[in-house]
Design a protein around this nucleic acid. Structure first.
Length: 145
DNA sequence: GCCAACGTTGGC
DNA sequence: GCCAACGTTGGC
């Protein structure tokens, strides 16, 4: 199993939107390097969600539930499907990442414009330890009678 | 195939 | 709002 990070502006699509939706198509990625990474997603890989711009923090974890397929909007590009796994209790901010001797070497810092990038096992463990993990369950079905 | 001009992303 | 970094476009 591999680890990844995808970025999104929370005003456009946030981790809480993903929790609400239960799963989502991660599409509209229009960068050649990001596409290479997306194509390497395997089912079961875990993925950090990073909120860019207004938040600038790693906020949650999701899982790849469908590997790359053509982006319905433009089949030159690809999409994957993601489902939420857990929120970070304390989002790990970009400032914290830059302040950490190991995390400051993350692709997130090295190439800030890349919207899909790999995360090493070591980086993953540190972020999870710093952030703490809170189970994110789909809303329980409403009892009806 | 090179490179200047322009566009986009995202941090500050 | 500015700018750095990177990508894309198009003239030559």
């Amino acid at each position: 199993m591999k680890y990844w990070m995808v970025k999104s502006e929370p005003e456009t699509y946030s981790f809480s939107d993903l929790v609400r939706d239960g799963k989502t198509r991660w599409d509209l990625v229009r960068n050649p390097t990001a596409r290479i990474h997306l194509r390497n997603f395997e089912k079961g890989d875990h993925v950090f969600i990073y909120h860019s711009m207004s938040d600038k923090a790693i906020v949650g974890i999701c899982e790849c539930i469908a590997t790359a397929y053509p982006d319905p909007a433009d089949d030159k590009w690809v999409a994957v499907d993601l489902a939420p796994v857990a929120a970070l209790q304390n989002p790990v901010t970009l400032a914290a990442v830059k302040a950490h001797p190991v995390l400051q070497k993350m692709e997130l810092v090295r190439q800030s414009r890349l919207s899909v990038c790999p995360v090493t096992d070591a980086e993953w463990a540190i972020v999870v330890a710093l952030g703490g993990v809170k189970e994110t369950k789909p809303a329980p079905p409403k009892s009806r009678r």
